[in-house]
Design a binder for these strands. Sequence first.
DNA 1: TGTTTTTATAAACACTGTTTATCATTTAAC
DNA 2: GTTAAATGATAAACAGTGTTTATAAAAACA
Lengths: 212, 212
Amino acid sequence: MGVRERKARDRKEMRDTILKSAYRLFLEKGFDDVSIRNVAEAIEYSPATIYLYFKDKNEIIHALHSQGFGLLNKHFQPLYKISDPFKRLSEMGKAYIRFAIKNAEMYKLLFVRSEPMEHLAGCDDKNWEEGDSAFDALSQTIAQCQQKGYFKKFDTHQFSMMVWSFTHGLCALRLSGHLGHVKEEREGKRKLDQIMNETLETFIHTLEKLKQ
Amino acid sequence: MGVRERKARDRKEMRDTILKSAYRLFLEKGFDDVSIRNVAEAIEYSPATIYLYFKDKNEIIHALHSQGFGLLNKHFQPLYKISDPFKRLSEMGKAYIRFAIKNAEMYKLLFVRSEPMEHLAGCDDKNWEEGDSAFDALSQTIAQCQQKGYFKKFDTHQFSMMVWSFTHGLCALRLSGHLGHVKEEREGKRKLDQIMNETLETFIHTLEKLKQ
DNA sequence: TGTTTTTATAAACACTGTTTATCATTTAAC
DNA sequence: GTTAAATGATAAACAGTGTTTATAAAAACA
């Protein structure tokens, strides 16, 4: 009696179809400009059908949110091969920024939007593996830096929060369009990517001076 | 013939009434949950009347955006009395964070939303006094720090961008609800304000070590 | 076969930003 | 003071949104 199994498969398939289509539309049109009706039209079903597979729009957002963290963790994977922890930290910064620029809408969903966090707060299950995993990668690298003599007098967790704050701030300012509107950047003709690289380099140099 | 003058006064008064009412509603309900109809109802006029005084919703947003930068600059005013530049820099960080928390919706409008920046990009007049003024206050303080021996080998502008990125990042993570969802913060029972203070202190200590 | 459960949808509800045609009031001109 | 033009305000409509509900078709089970 494989009917239940097949139905479960069909259901998952439909959910995937919806998510895939929604994500493609989000990349095309930006997050705020995609409606349930758009998604429904793209998969050639009626809008009401979407609600048979997802409770509401927030559940779709949250599902994509989870997928996005998986994507981010994948982007970090190659960096774990770098043995020098400070070099790895530096490359993690660059990779984080690359991810934010290449997947702008997804980055906003992961770290700028507050809906996913509110949804998470409503869940009973307070564990949040995807998010923790990314932050742990940073914390562990910083702990290893400390073993090599960097930022020795600092608390590992607090220092990680500091590094994350900086890197996120830089990405957020870029994605919201604020970077290019600072006077010096308006007048100079540096490209946004260059500004970000220089600012990151400045931060890295700052950290570099904290050895011993 | 003071008719034109009186009409201009009336017009400005109506615009102020609309803006004041809109801002009050934004503080109450959050930015996304305020509609033109809400504003119209609050001032006891029809929705269509709003469009006699503002081209569209974006123009209201932009007007509030300008007012918001005025408010931020006012918050910084008292700090200019502090003669020690590094102490002033440190206090500016605290003041910035206080402003972001106390005026959360306004902060999001000023630094998180991209609409105002897009609106600004569409304007012919590329000058943007309010925004420049706030950033200049930071740059000048950092330049004075450098004269006192701090971060001497760094470019003033790039260092300012770095400091702003960190501070904004911390505020943005707080306002989007991401701060409290880091594993250590979920498990520990530190309050968000305390986390922010500790992270800012970590950053200040980092900068402090860059003397000479 | 008949009955129940599942799946899909059209239509509706209560919203949104914005535009247009209409009406009343105020200003200007004679 | 009367008339014509400009202004101010609005009701109604348009096209869109997220979501719910009643209805019809299809599939699963007995």
